[in-house]
Lab assay of single mutants.
Amino acid sequence: KFGRVHERAEGPAKILAIGTATPFHWVDQSSYPDYYFRVTNSDHLVDLKEKFRRICNRTMISKRHMFLTEEILQKNPNLCSHNEPSFDVRQDILVSEIPKLGKEAVLMAIDEWAQPKSKITHLVFCTRSGVDMPGADYQLIKLLGLSPSVQRVMMYQQGCFAGGTMLRLAKDLAENNKGARVLVVCAESSAIGFRGPSEDHPDNLIAQALFGDGAAALIIGSDPKMGLERPIFEIVTTAQTFVPNGDCHLALHLREMGLTFHCTKDVPPTIAKNVESCLIKAFEPLGISDWNSIFWILHPGGNAIVDQVESTLGLEPNKLQATRNILREYGNLSSACVLFILDEIRKKSGREGLKTSGDGLDLGVLLSFGPGLTIETVVLR
């Protein structure tokens, strides 16, 4: 008597548009150690500064975009301390800036989509910054002038794996609601975790050397309108798992001094060791076991992770080039990073006149991972 209210779509979910945005301000990685130790009044920690310089040199990052300028840091000195309470200051900045950054990426996506924004039916927003109620999803709806009846899902504090999570959720929403057009937004800022150095917490140096700011937005829907919408990728399958006891290797915690970062040297080999089982589960039903026969979007948690995944799986050097390019130009953008790589690989395919948006290949994989050593596996066509 009370059956399904919403009719299912006929076809699989497809990515119809991609937009990205970054803050205008950026830092050069080669000179960042001098800048970082100067603005945090830590130049007296000579040995720690040299250690940080070595870490920065190993990241293979060229530059990173950041909202925090020297002027902002001078006005808010607690942000430059390692342990002073600064959460309220971070909140005041990020509750406002995260939706604005997301808006810039959304406008780029809508411009490519070339359809009225009134056709957006759902919003899925993800960030690890600016936790608030009502959330960044609500603020973004107002900034864009979208209908208050847009169906919203707000996900805070997920971390680097969440780019894949957003695709998984959007696929379910698009395929189970005929005519749905799902706006996916990942907006991230390193301002939540920026803090001064400490000899007692070397993990913090890794975070300060890796993370950048950026937002990515996608429009996802099934059954694209012929002649009006141009699909870029099809989302074939999605899956999530985590490595048992992985939280002892990688975890982040909200504290009075901001978001703290805990990471062990076992993260790269542990991820590399567990990736292939995810690939087998995803691609065995499709008859694929040659990992060089697919295109790759791999989250660059750090250069060591990229190198070890490449080595463990025997990947050809060009397979992870898009990942390395984004890491070099932006650093680790947390949940937004794989979506930047997705954009990079389709643009490169277009520039080179390849037959598909995925490096000329039919199928590919998007792998994202993060806290708890959670792994998201997304098969794309």
Rank of each mutant, 00 (worst) to 15 (best):
Phe369Cys: 13
Ser129Gly: 13
Leu252Met: 12
Thr377Tyr: 01
Gly360Ile: 00
Asp290Phe: 09
Lys51Pro: 05
Gly331Asp: 10
Gly258Thr: 10
Gly130Thr: 04
Val131Phe: 05
Val106Thr: 13
Ala13Cys: 00
Ser334Val: 03
His25Val: 07
Leu123Ala: 03
Glu7Ser: 09
Ile326Val: 10
Leu354Ala: 12
Gln74Ile: 02
Thr127Glu: 10
Ile72Lys: 05
Asp92His: 08
Thr40Val: 07
Val365Pro: 15
Gln139Val: 08
Lys355Val: 04
Ser277Cys: 09
Trp296Cys: 11
Gly130Lys: 04
Asp247Trp: 11
Leu361Glu: 13
Arg346Thr: 02
Glu256Asn: 12
Thr20Ile: 02
Ser357Cys: 02
Glu352Arg: 15
Lys100Val: 06
Trp113Lys: 03
Asn41Glu: 06
Gly301Met: 13
Glu276Leu: 04
Ser277Val: 12
Thr356Val: 04
Gly364Asn: 00
Gly301Trp: 11
Asp92Tyr: 07
Ala17Cys: 02
His65Glu: 11
Ser30Glu: 15
Asp34Leu: 10
Ser357Lys: 06
Ala304Arg: 02
Pro268Phe: 14
Leu45Glu: 05
Gly350Leu: 13
Glu316Ala: 11
Val365Lys: 15
Gly145Arg: 02
Leu279His: 01
His44Tyr: 07
Val39Asp: 11
Leu298Gln: 03
Ser293Val: 12
Val243Leu: 12
Lys100Gln: 05
Trp291Met: 05
Leu313Met: 14
Lys1Ala: 06
Ala9Asn: 02
Ser293Ala: 03
Gly145Ser: 06
Val124Gly: 04
Leu143Trp: 08
Glu276Trp: 04
Phe295Met: 04
Leu259Gly: 12
Asp28Cys: 04
Leu342Thr: 04
Met60Leu: 08
Ser334Ile: 00
Glu97Ile: 05
Arg351Cys: 03
Thr270Ile: 10
Leu373Asn: 15
Lys75Trp: 07
Tyr330Ile: 06
Leu366Gly: 12
Pro12Cys: 06
Thr241Gly: 09
Ala136Pro: 09
Pro77Ala: 07
Asp343Glu: 02
Ser357Met: 04
Gly358Trp: 04
Asn292Ile: 05
Glu112Trp: 08
Cys278Asp: 11
Asp47Asn: 03
Lys348Ala: 00
Asn76Phe: 14
Ala13Arg: 03
Thr241Glu: 12
Glu234Arg: 04
Leu254Gln: 14
Leu320Val: 04
Glu344Arg: 04
Leu79Asn: 06
Thr22Asn: 11
Ser311Met: 15
Asn41Cys: 06
Met60Asp: 08
Tyr330Gly: 07
Leu140Lys: 06
Met66Leu: 03
Phe261Ala: 14
Pro244Glu: 06
Asn274Gln: 14
Leu339Ile: 04
Leu339Ala: 09
Lys347Val: 03
Gly130Arg: 05
Glu104Asp: 11
Ala17Glu: 01
Arg38Val: 04
Thr237Pro: 05
His249Gly: 13
Cys337Asn: 15
Leu254Glu: 13
Gly19Ile: 13
Val379Phe: 13
Lys117Asn: 08
Val39Ile: 07
Asn292Gln: 00
Thr374Lys: 02
Phe369Gln: 15
Phe52Tyr: 12
Ile326Pro: 05
Ile232Ser: 09
Ile280Val: 14
Glu10Val: 11
Tyr330Pro: 13
Leu366Thr: 03
Lys348Tyr: 00
Val267Leu: 14
Glu71Lys: 14
Val46Glu: 11
Lys281Asn: 07
Leu333Val: 10
Ile297His: 06
Ile297Tyr: 13
Asn274Thr: 13
Ser129Thr: 14
Gly130Phe: 04
Met257Gly: 14
Val267Arg: 02
Ser149Arg: 14
His249Trp: 09
Leu286Ile: 00
Val5Asn: 02
Thr323Phe: 00
Leu333Glu: 07
Asp343His: 05
Gly258Gln: 00
Asp247Gly: 08
Ser335Ala: 10
His253Pro: 15
Phe24Leu: 13
Ile232Ala: 03
Leu315Gln: 06
Lys100His: 06
Thr121Ile: 10
His82Tyr: 11
Leu279Phe: 06
Val46Gly: 06
Asp307Gln: 00
Lys103Gln: 13
Glu112Ser: 03
Ala114Trp: 00
Pro371Leu: 03
Lys100Gly: 10
Ser357Asn: 06
Arg54Trp: 01
Thr237Glu: 12
Leu366Met: 13
Leu146Gln: 03
Ser289Pro: 07
Ile141Val: 05
Gly350Asp: 10
Leu373Arg: 15
Val131Thr: 09
Ser31Tyr: 11
Arg381Asp: 12
His299Pro: 14
Asp28Asn: 07
Lys142Trp: 03
Gly130Ile: 02
Ala282Arg: 15
Pro371Gly: 09
Leu315Glu: 06
Thr121Val: 03
His44Val: 05
Asp362Tyr: 03
Tyr138Ala: 14
Phe233Arg: 02
Ser293Gly: 04
Glu344Cys: 00
Ile280Ser: 08
Glu256Phe: 07
Thr40Arg: 09
Ser368Asp: 15
Phe369Trp: 13
Tyr32Asp: 08
Ser81Arg: 12
Ser81Glu: 09
His253Cys: 11
Cys278Glu: 14
Leu101His: 09
Lys265Val: 02
Thr121Ala: 00
Thr377Cys: 00
Asn245Trp: 07
Ser334Asn: 15
His262Asn: 14
Ser81Val: 11
Pro23Ala: 08
Glu71Pro: 14
Gly301Val: 14
Asn325Trp: 08
Thr323Ala: 07
Ala251Lys: 03
Ala304Ile: 09
Cys278Ala: 10
Ala21Leu: 05
His82Val: 08
Asp137Arg: 06
Lys319Ala: 12
Lys63Asp: 09
Gln74Gly: 10
Asp362Pro: 10
Leu279Thr: 06
Pro244Thr: 13
Phe340Glu: 15
Arg90Lys: 14
Asp28Trp: 03
Leu342Glu: 12
Arg324Val: 01
Asn245Cys: 08
Gly130Gln: 08
Leu73Thr: 10
Lys273Thr: 05
Phe369His: 15
Ile72Ser: 09
Val236Phe: 12
Thr260Val: 08
Asn83Gly: 13
Leu327Asp: 04
Met108Trp: 01
Asp28Gln: 00
Ser30Lys: 10
Leu259Phe: 09
Gly246Thr: 11
Lys265Gly: 12
Leu339Arg: 10
Leu107Trp: 13
Ile120Asn: 01
Phe369Glu: 15
Gly246Lys: 12
Ser277Asp: 10
Pro99Leu: 14
Cys337Phe: 07
Glu104Gln: 11
Leu342Gly: 10
Gly350Thr: 13
Met108Val: 05
His262Met: 03
Ala322Asp: 10
Ser62Gly: 13
Ile72Thr: 07
Lys119Glu: 13
Thr40Trp: 06
Leu315Pro: 06
Lys63Arg: 06
Ser289Arg: 06
Val89Tyr: 03
Ala322Thr: 07
Val365Ile: 07
Gln240Ala: 08
Ser96Leu: 04
Ser311Cys: 11
Val378Ala: 15
Leu366Ser: 09
Ile341Gln: 09
Leu228Pro: 10
Tyr32Ala: 07
Ala136Cys: 12
Ser357Trp: 11
Lys348Ile: 01
Phe242Arg: 10
Val243Asp: 14
Ile55Asn: 15
Phe283Ser: 02
Arg58Trp: 01
